[in-house]
């Protein structure tokens, strides 16, 4: 029996899972929508992954969780590593591309830039309070234009003359887009303009003040949009690598971390059939009213968090 490691990346929009062997080879992977319910999404993920690898030759000996729901999912899957997504992405990419110097990452709600020297992360930045120029912005504009977001890139490439679209702010971009459509710009030009706007926004905000050096790897859901990739190449004057598994990098990265650390904890795919309930309550200990989250498995309390002081800790009910 060979050891295998499961990495789960639960983002706001999508949930990704990867099972790797000791040589960091991907044995199984799955990508599905979170749909606002991370617990349900992970159950689905586990059911799917279970059928995709050979249980006779591999056993999952440890689990790692990353992404914005990492804490919750880490508790449920008894993960040995709960890692932030910035580190997970960096480790995933540097494992696959040891020469990489710059990582562009655009996801559903956030975007980041990671600078690497000799395989080590030396600097990073992440977008702040606003989701401008991320996947959810492209998705909402695609609905407005009546085009599937998956077709965006292909359509963008047919444009000869991308329409300039204000890139600074989502609200301005949207009104600019409506205006440009009404005065008669073609749909492919607008879509190409949007891809360009995402890139401009990214380089001016997240990439501000950072020296961008090749090789560049572009990942996250938006890297599936070839229009954005081309716009990145045009803006930086450098080739941009998109890995076919780029959308899985976070899950892959946290699986690699788990393998490196070597800690083991028995894992059972039967979790997918168990009942997990989360309850949010407001602590009445003081005026701060901390939002406390409790997680129950088959009616039994697994963990609780969210309180700022000792008063609020309750692991009993």
């Amino acid at each position: 029996m060979n050891k295998a490691y499961l990495g789960i990346d639960i983002g706001s929009i999508s949930t990704k899972g990867v099972i790797i062997d000791g040589q960091n080879r991907i044995l199984a992977s799955e990508y599905l929508w979170t749909e606002g319910n991370p617990v349900q999404a992970v159950k689905k993920l586990l059911l799917s992954l279970r059928g995709k690898f050979d249980p006779a030759s591999y056993a999952v000996t440890a689990v790692g969780a990353t992404g914005s729901a990492r804490r919750l999912i880490g508790v449920i899957t008894r993960a040995t590593e709960v890692k932030n997504e910035i580190t997970a992405h960096a480790v995933g990419t540097t494992t696959l591309y040891p020469e990489v110097r710059t990582i562009f990452e655009i996801g559903g709600q956030d975007s980041k830039i990671i600078l690497v020297e000799n395989g080590v992360v030396v600097d990073y930045a992440m977008n702040t309070l606003c989701a401008a120029g991320t996947g959810s912005f492209l998705a909402s504009q695609s609905r407005r234009l009546g085009v599937a977001v998956e077709d965006f890139g292909r359509i963008a490439l047919t444009s000869q003359n991308p329409t300039p679209i204000a890139a600074r702010c989502t609200v301005f971009a949207e009104s600019d887009l409506v205006h440009k459509a009404q005065i008669g710009h073609s749909r492919e030009d607008i879509i190409a303009g949007l891809c360009k706007a995402v890139v401009t926004n990214y380089l001016n905000n997240v990439g501000k003040g950072k020296k961008i050096v090749g090789p560049i790897v572009f990942q996250g859901g938006v890297s599936k949009n070839v229009g954005v990739t081309k716009a990145f190449e045009a803006a930086t004057g450098l080739p941009v690598i998109v890995d076919p598994n780029g959308h899985l990098t976070g899950a892959f990265g946290v699986a690699v971390i788990v393998g490196r650390k070597g800690a083991e904890r028995p894992f059972d795919f039967g979790l997918a059939e168990m009942e997990f309930v989360t309850k949010g309550t407001n602590c009445d200990g003081c005026a701060n009213h901390c939002e406390i989250i409790r997680v129950y498995q088959n009616g039994e309390l697994l963990d609780a968090w969210g309180n700022k002081c000792e008063k609020g800790v309750s692991r009993t009910r």
Binding site: K83, N84, T87, V120, V121, V122, Y124, M126, L129
Partner: peptide, 26 residues
């Protein structure tokens, strides 16, 4: 600003700590 969610702050701090550790190790 007046936001109260800690998750984003925690993510950035953790990543910053990991990065400093890896740099120092290298």
């Amino acid at each position: 600003d007046s936001q109260t969610a800690d998750a984003g702050i925690q993510t950035r701090l953790e990543a910053f700590y990991d990065m400093m550790t890896m740099r120092k190790g290298a």
